[in-house]
Write a protein that binds this DNA or RNA. Structure first.
Ligand code: SF4
Ligand code: SF4
Lengths: 167, 167
DNA sequence: ATATTATAGATAATTAGTGTCCTTAATGGG
DNA sequence: CCCATTAAGGACACTAATTATCTATAATAT
């Protein structure tokens, strides 16, 4: 059915809320916030850390914080961090049979430029990614700040402040 | 991992080869051509038929043929026919918790415009689809005719002619 | 009538996605 | 130094989606 994994959604939810905080925040709080499981969200954040989107500090008062300005983190970065970078179209290389119905092994060996069908799909994918590369976390944060009701934003802010103070 | 199903690949392989034929061709031949299973390919073609990309005639000398000019069939049409039209990002609606950490049930009821994260993902998806809408089967066929070696093209043509004659 | 071919449904096998649990390692505070 | 806390990683379980097979049925040309 071809869709992004829930991890992408979890990650974006968390990241956009991490922005205003200036201290590390732990998985426990982030999980509680969204009502999802700690253990699973933890896996997600390990991926984000490996992609250097967040930085982790273990131990008391530890947690996660952004490694760089949210202006420099794009939706694309997050998607790739979570989903990996395998292209959405993977040629099963039926071509040897499909377009020659025979050999062509010679050409198969050299891993040359992929066939037209493959290339077209990958280009299409790039269109999507180019768009996602333009959308930064900062943009998301700012646009939400404009779109959401002050009420909700305030409640939200309070919730995180309370959590940070508790630690 | 977010990728197109193999069905899309099977379908494109078949369709681009159906173009030059002016008679119905059966699943058996198309499956043999690609070296994939008849039963599975048959499911794929049922989907293509439902999407009115191909037309089927059962019985002796039956098979599939295009319903319309390959100029009017796009990669997008094929992808949607096979994969269905569910968007690639499906909000799990954690927002009630995520951005309000409370109620907001009122707003949940009205199925209004989706939130910014969701919208952004869907726009990105559209970028990909817009690209695929521009690529027609005819374009694929013609570009392949230019790119592939005359040798391969000829072998290819012969294979299908032989099959058609056998019926 | 018969052989051929598509359609549909049931079901199996395989793989990917989601989620839990437990152990280890790092860290700060007492 | 010891302890509570937190992230990281591995092993595993569960679920859902994908890919594939098989069988029965209906339509069709000869
Ligand atoms: S995608 Fe291209 S190379 Fe790959 S099997 Fe299909 S036609 Fe061949
Ligand atoms: S995608 Fe948007 S509406 Fe859906 S849960 Fe995430 S933030 Fe909420």
């Amino acid at each position: 059915m071809m869709n992004f994994s829930v991890g992408v959604e979890y990650a974006l939810h968390c990241l956009v809320n991490i922005i205003p905080l200036n201290r590390p925040i732990g998985i426990k709080d982030l999980a509680e916030f969204q009502g999802v499981s700690e253990s699973y969200l933890s896996k997600i954040f390990t991926k984000l850390a490996k992609a250097r989107i967040v930085q982790s500090t273990p131990g008391v008062k530890g947690g996660y914080e952004l490694t760089k300005s949210p202006k420099k983190i794009t939706f694309y970065d997050v998607v790739i961090a979570i989903e990996g970078s395998q292209p959405i179209f993977q040629c099963k290389n039926i071509i040897a049979k499909a377009f020659t119905n025979e050999a062509l092994e010679a050409e198969e060996d050299e891993d040359e430029v992929p066939c037209l069908i493959n290339r077209t799909m990958l280009e299409a994918e790039q269109q999507m990614y180019n768009f996602l590369k333009e959308k930064t976390l900062m943009w998301l944060r700012e646009t939400l700040d404009n779109e959401l009701s002050p009420d909700i934003l305030e409640k939200n802010r309070e919730w995180f402040q309370k959590k940070l103070v508790q630690n």
